[in-house]
Design a protein around this nucleic acid. Structure first.
Length: 558
RNA sequence: GCCCUCGUAGCUCAGUCGGAUAGAGCGACCGCCUCCUAAGCGGUAGGCCAUGGGUUCAAUUCCCGUCGAGGGCACCA
């Protein structure tokens, strides 16, 4: 006893188990590589204990011993770890670990005391990460695809921050090129009641922009044609960008940086970026054009930076933009792109390598498209924007919480079909309500406790009283949260947090169903009920923190 | 032709940095409120994890082939 620190979290327990393994290795006079981080699993079946390790199976080959022999040596040592009540060998050589209820129960107190910081960690401490997403043209409202990136990109950023990284979110404004001119021409045509050019922008919002511009500045229509065109284009750009920014703020998606492609050119950043790559020796000229030799780093063909006519390509901007990000000291640049851009992955990574960085300093997440249906019928038409569904219309219909949650809860690489009727349902069918309901339910219990004058926070907490099967299950799930957050951050998969919350909510509902928390009528408050109040508070805090990572509200009443 | 993503219950989808009997919701069927939010809980039914090989003590998970679905292969933006 006393050789190991008392375990309170799965991480601590893993450290103690690893120490036990090391001790066995030295006693058995073996030379073995033991992984620096030993992972404990949470078995699916409670019959297999609170935690399980496959370490005996993993070491069997190198040790030239049967897994069961190793397990038989390890199990007694693991059983001695303070807080561990049993370590049993099972199956081919798993060691199933059971904690005593006082140790596990302690988790509730730790969570309540840690508060909003519960779940945060240091897995990514010291990393400077840039997350770029949406990056739309400022020529129209944001659509459904952008909405997925808005929700997921923002959640990724939040999860990375929770894991200790230093994170900036970034929106690259594609405000250069012919599409801006088409946009300007469309708005100007509308202002003069002319037919919008066939290759222009056709949505009703064009007319709204034109009308707004003319009202703000009636004299604009008197300007010489060239000047007038530029004025319309610039005014429409400003209005449309502002509209995008407002919609995103309402969607709780905040960007730290809005970088304009135009500004990148005007500040000579593009020239500067190309110079840097030239200095690295990956730029060459052929047929009058300037190329980047991306094939050195896994791209299928080299890419043109400056066309034979002297114009910079879009790729030149991208390249310079990457150099710019690196000069702003971001170590890792994450890009969220639609599936139609997956051809960009290799060239973007090659840009990093051409700049003298590692390929994996660029991470590209490719997302599949989103479709929405209403009662099974596909919804396509937008009143304002022609044949797309816009972010603001979608959110108007379902609300920010349901929109964000239902977009985040799936891995981005799976195509998604959302049914408007389903995600606005107030039932089990709709996971966001299910999770929020659990939070509201707990808030209600705590509110009732306060009304009964129960000051549970100042009463003694005895975690050992939380020994009911459902309490054990709930405590174990709560203890998983930091691992879930760290995993979501490392894998850039915030949907894991959502799935975890659904699981946690379900476990809470089951606990609630079989464990009475508050005294009824004239009953005396028992120490067990006090412990359960701590457990409720810990669950509420964890659900709250989790929803926070997704940018979804945690209501106290529903 | 080459490349990317995907193929899991009737439907919508999780799971897979290899682990012990493959999960959830919906839909179907059967139960549970004189009691803290029934927007909840319990139970029944439903699967050759597309398919054929390989690696492994162990494969739905990793590797290769096949079939099927979607997307991409610009001196466009």
């Amino acid at each position: 006893m006393g050789r190991y620190a008392p375990p309170v979290t799965p991480e601590d327990l893993a450290v103690s188990v690893r120490a036990a393994v090391l001790e066995w290795v030295s006693q058995a006079d073996l030379i073995l590589e033991i992984p620096a981080e030993l992972r404990l699993e949470r078995p699916k079946s409670r019959d297999h204990g609170d935690y399980a390790t496959n370490i005996a199976l993993a070491l069997a080959k190198a040790a030239q011993l049967s897994p069961r022999v190793i397990a038989e040596s390890l199990a007694p040592k693991i059983a001695e770890i303070p807080g561990v009540s049993a370590a049993e060998i099972a199956g081919p050589g798993f060691i199933n670990i059971r904690l005593d209820s006082a140790t596990l129960g302690q988790t509730a107190q730790i969570i309540v005391e840690t508060g909003a910081a519960y779940g945060t960690g240091t897995a990514l401490a010291g990393q400077q990460i840039n997350v770029e997403f949406i990056s739309a043209n400022p020529t129209g409202p944001l659509h459904l695809g952008h909405t997925r990136w808005a929700a997921v990109g923002d959640a990724i950023a939040r999860v990375l921050v929770a894991a200790g990284a230093n994170v900036s979110t970034e929106f690259y404004i594609n405000d250069r090129g012919v599409q801006m001119d088409k946009f300007g021409a469309s708005v100007m045509a509308s202002a003069h009641d002319q037919v919008i050019p066939e290759d222009g922008y056709q949505g009703a919002y064009i007319h709204d922009l034109a009308a707004a511009i003319v009202i703000a500045r009636p004299s604009i229509k008197e300007l010489p044609i060239e000047e007038q065109f530029i004025s319309f284009r610039e005014a429409a750009y400003a209005l449309q960008l502002k509209q995008q920014q407002q919609v995103l703020e309402q969607f709780r998606t905040h960007f730290d940086f809005w970088t304009s492609e135009r500004a990148l050119h005007e500040s000579n950043s593009v020239e500067h970026g190309l110079d840097r790559l030239r200095a690295q020796g990956h730029v060459y000229e052929l047929d009058g054009a300037v190329w980047l030799r991306t094939t050195d780093f896994g791209d299928d063909k080299d890419r043109v930076l400056i066309k034979a006519d002297g114009e910079c390509t879009y790729f030149a901007s991208d390249t310079a933009y990457y150099v710019d990000k690196r000069e702003r000291n971001f170590d890792i640049c994450i890009y969220l792109l639609g599936a139609d851009h997956h051809g960009y992955v290799n060239r973007l990574r090659a840009v990093a390598a051409c700049n003298g960085d590692q390929l994996d300093q660029v991470e590209v997440l490719i997302g599949q498209l989103v479709k929405i249906t209403r009662g099974g019928e596909e919804v396509k038409l937008s009143k304002r924007a022609g044949n797309i569904v816009t972010l603001d219309e979608f959110v108007d219909e379902v609300g920010v919480d349901a929109a964000r949650y239902s977009l985040i809860r799936y891995p981005v690489d799976s195509p998604l079909t959302l049914d408007l009727e389903v995600i606005t349902l107030r039932s089990n069918d709709n996971p966001v309500f299910y999770v929020q309901y659990a939070h509201a339910r707990i808030a209600s219990v705590l509110r009732n406790a306060a009304e009964l004058g129960i000051a549970w926070q100042s009463l003694d907490f005895d975690g050992g009283l939380l020994s009911h099967e459902r309490e054990n299950e709930l405590l174990g799930a709560l203890a998983e949260f930091p691992r879930v957050v760290a995993g979501a951050a490392e894998l850039r998969e915030p949907h894991r947090v959502a799935r975890y919350l659904e699981d946690l909510a379900s476990i809470y509902h089951r606990f609630y169903d079989s464990c009475r928390v508050l005294p009824r009528g004239d009953e005396e408050l028992t120490p067990e009920q006090v412990a359960r109040l701590w457990l409720c508070a810990a669950t509420r805090q964890t659900i709250f923190n989790g929803l926070q990572l997704l940018g979804v509200s945690a209501p106290d009443r529903m």
